[in-house]
Amino acid sequence: MFSNASNFVHGVDKAFLIIFSISLFFLILLTTIMITFVIKYNKKKHAKAVQIKDSSWLEFTWTAIPMILVMLMFYVGWEGFLPMRQAPKDAMHVKIIGQMWKWSFEYPGNKVSDTLVLPINKAVKFDLVSKDVIHGMFIPAFRIKEDVVPGKNNYTWCIPGELGDFDLFCSAYCGVSHSYMSAIIKIVPEDKYNLWLAVLPVKKADDNKEGYKILEANGCFSCHSVDGKKIVGPSFKSLYNTSIEVNTDGVKHKITADDLYIKNSIYEPNKDIVDGYQQGIMKSYKGIVKEKDLPKIYEYLNSIKAN
C-alpha cells in the first residue's frame, strides 16, 4: 500500500483505506449489536418481547448519516480517479496493441517490443489499440486499468516511480488463452531506457509479403506459428499442399492442404479439425478475410513451405 510505483497509487489507496475503514467499523459494530441482542434477548432470559414504537427521529438519523458517509466515499473515489484522465500534454506516447493473446508495445519511430520498457519519473500516455476483441490493460502495481476496445481510442497514462519489473495482465476475458495474455513492464533509469530504445529494431516489414500482412492484421500468428511450433492451432510451416490428417464430423481422413482446404479452414474452421487439436476455438473469418485476398495468403504459405 501507498507505494510509489506510480503517481496514482496514493489517491487510489487513500480511497481504499477510507472506504475500508468505514466499512469495517460498521461491520464490527452491527455484528456486535446483533450478537449482543441474540444473547441478551434470548427467549430463555427474555420471555416476553417488548413492542417498540417507530421513531421518525431515529429513522431520519440512520438515513442521514449513511448519506453523508457515502457522499464522502464518492468524493475520495472521484478525487483519486480524476488525475487518471488528465494526461499531461507533453507525455511520451506508447501504443499498446492487444490481440488474441499477446501484447505488443509500439514506440515512436515504428519500433515494436514485447516487453514494456519505460523510463522512471516520466509521464507516459498509453494509446490502447485492439486488433480483434476487447482486452483489458491492467497493471496492478500502478493502479491502472483501461479496456482495450476495438474501434475506440481508449487511453490511460501514468508516471512510473519505482525501478523494477511489474506485471501487466489482460483483465477482460478474450478467449482460450486469456490467462496467458500477460507482459512484463521494466522501469529503468532514463539513460538505460534511451540505450534500450536506440537498439530496439524498427518494426519488421517481414518480407513485405501481402499475405503475411493480412495474417498479421487478423492476429492469426497468435495461434498458428510459422516455425513449426505447436501453439493453439497447427503451425503454418510446411503445411501448404501437404497431406494432413483431419477429423470431419468425428471421422478421421487424409486431406491435402490445398487452396480449397485453406479457404475452408478460414471460413468454416470447425468443419475439418486437424487431428490432435480442439474444436470450437477458432472463429469464422468469413467477411473479415476478403475472398480477393485469399490468393495472397496461399502465396505466403507456399513461400514458408520452402524454408
Binding site: V12, I19, L27, M34, G77, M84, S171
Partner: peptide, 25 residues
Amino acid sequence: IFLFIIGGTTGLILGSVATNIQVHD
C-alpha cells in the same frame, strides 16, 4: 445480514471510481 453487510460494503469499494479501476474484472 452478516454476509450482506460484507457484500454491500465491498460494493462501496466497487462503486467508487478510483478503487473500482483497481478491482474491476
